[in-house]
Amino acid sequence: MSKFILPLVALLFFISESLFVTLFSGELYNSEQIFVPRFIMVFLVFLTIYGSRKMGVIYGFILGLLFDAVYTEILGIYMFLFPILCYLISKAMKVLQTNLFIVLIVSVLFIALLEVAIFEVNVILHFAEMSFSEFVEVRLLPTLILNLAFTILAAFPLKLQMEKFELETRED
């Protein structure tokens, strides 16, 4: 039974992004700022740090593939970025201590990295016509604030869940 919990949680995070956007689009999105939920990335950060690197990379790949196929319909971008970022997180955590505050900072940092990378890809593919400063003002900062709030809310339950999962896999 417990084997299915992690994929279910992952699926829940995956769907929550689109639900968030459909629900709050009326209120949040009529403003000039653009808030992008990056809940999957938060999930991956916690999975990589409190679970294992291998798990993080595999889940990053699968969730990225789903994201590309279902939401953006351009294959490859998220499928490539999520595993790479997970790998980098695990490298970064070798230097840093694992406490909740540091994890918060790391997750915000990597969400920023993801946003910038996606922005650059879209500029190359001509889906975006923004200057970088405009991008920071309109997209990056609101997105970071939203996701920081989400991370603070979700941090403790996520951490517990991941640690439980890690224990179970070790016992196996």
């Binding site: 992004e17 639900l19 653009i34 953006t72 319909e73 996606i118 889906f127």
Partner: peptide, 8 residues
């Protein structure tokens, strides 16, 4: 559903 990253 709606695409969460709002580029597309």
């Amino acid at each position: 559903g709606r695409n969460p990253d709002r580029w597309h």
